[in-house]
Structure formats: C-alpha cells, structure tokens
Amino acid sequence: MTTRRAWWKTVLGLVFTGIMLFPVYWMFNVSLTQTSDLRASPPHWFPWAPTFEGYATALDQQLPALGTSLLIGLSTVVLTVLIAAPAGYAIALLNLRGGKVLSFGLIVAQMIPAVVMAMGFYAIYVRLDLLNTVGGLILANSTVAVPFGVLLYTAFMSGMPKELLQAARVDGAGAWRTFISVVMPISRNSTITVALFAFLWAWADFIFASTLNRSGGMIPITLSIYQYIGNNTTQWNAIMATAVVASIPATVLLVLAQRYVAAGVTAGSVKD
C-alpha cells in the first residue's frame, strides 16, 4: 500500500514540477521556434520544426558579453573569498572584539537595497572615473556576496572542533598557519557555497550593470539581453536563445554542485 501511495505522490510531484517549470520550458520552446512561427496563433506548444537560427544569432552577437560576465563572476568570487574567509576566521575562532556587532551590521548590510548602493557607487565612480569599467562592476557586485560570505564562514567555523585548533597550537602553528593549513581545508564546502553564490549573483546582476556600466565597451550578458529586448522586439527566438545560454551556469551548478551546497548547508547546521 505504501508503494502505491508513494507512486501517486510521484505523479503529483511531476505535475507540480511541470507547472513550476513551465516558464523555463517555454523559454526553451520559443528559442527553437522559427521566426515566421513566433506570431502564430495559437502559439506552437512544441518546437516541431526546431531551428537554431535564434542560437546562431545569439552566439554571433552575445559571445563577448558572455565572456565579460564570466570574467566578472569569477573575479567577484575571488574577491569575496579573500575578504570573507579571514573575517569569518577572526569572528568565529579568534574571538574578535565586537564580532557580534559586526555580524549584526552584516545582516543589516544585506538588507540595503541595491538601488541605493548603485546610486552611492555612481556618485563615487563619477569622480574616480570608474564608471563603465569592469573593475568597478566587480567591486559593486562583491558587496552583495561579501556579507553573506562572512556570515556563512562565521557560522561554519564556529562549529569547528576546538581540539583541532588547540592541537595546531600545540604543534607550534600561529594564527596564520592554522588558518591556511587547518581552517581553510576543513571549510572547503563553505568556500564552495560562498563561491557558488557569489558567482551566481554576479552573473545575474542587472542593477549594477545597468547603472554603473551603461555605456561601457564590455557589458555583461544581463545588460546585453536587456538592450536586445529594447532594440529588437521582433526576434524573440534570438532573445530567448540568449536567455537559455545565460541560464547555462545556473543549470550546470544545479546539476553538479547541488550536493556541495547541501553539504555546506548541513555541515554548518550540525554544530551543537
């Protein structure tokens, strides 16, 4: 009886997932539709005669933007980990004075709207001539991930067995040595989680790109799609093809790294 009931749930689960993912399917479907069929009424529910013209156009025009996004994403990851990991170590394991206040500050920092940050950065970048630069965009993007990273590292590291650190100290390792050869290797899953989110947020960023990099030579994919929609509303198959390509990192990470995310999350939670 239980198995029958379980299969019934599976069917229901498939239906729910189907409904939930319908927009994703639709994006995929439209991306394969021929331009002449885009305005067909009713729309084609399935791409019976798939075409890759949308993808050809997309790749032809969007490759540089994809490269820029990749560069921004990876740089944001590096910057975030370099700042967040030592800070987490200081708060969680070195008993930094004022660590609690700092953590609260970081929680509040996460609540600050990106629009506000964008305006502040704009005002600063205008003077420093950092508008429309990739470096400026990387810095701005990292502000989303750094507070998250510090809080995550702090949470994970405060759950580390203290005996391990004492053992390192007995062996004569200083704070730096302990950090590099004991704490960081154990925190590997946290690093993966932080890196994952830093990358995804930077990759998906639209607000900073559309404010700080509006007329730059190197624009990220999100801004490129947005400008594409503005200029070229008829070629929705190409727009959706670009959207599919822009979703690849998310999909890859969902498939490959989901286990690591789950591992990082649960590792952080079993600490009592």
Partner: peptide
C-alpha cells in the same frame, strides 16, 4: 524546483 531561483532575473 530551485531552477526559477537560480536563473538570472532578467531571463
């Protein structure tokens, strides 16, 4: 089910 959350918002 995570998919919608992971996609770039612009997409």
């Amino acid at each position: 089910f995570l998919m919608p959350w992971l996609l770039p918002l612009i997409v």
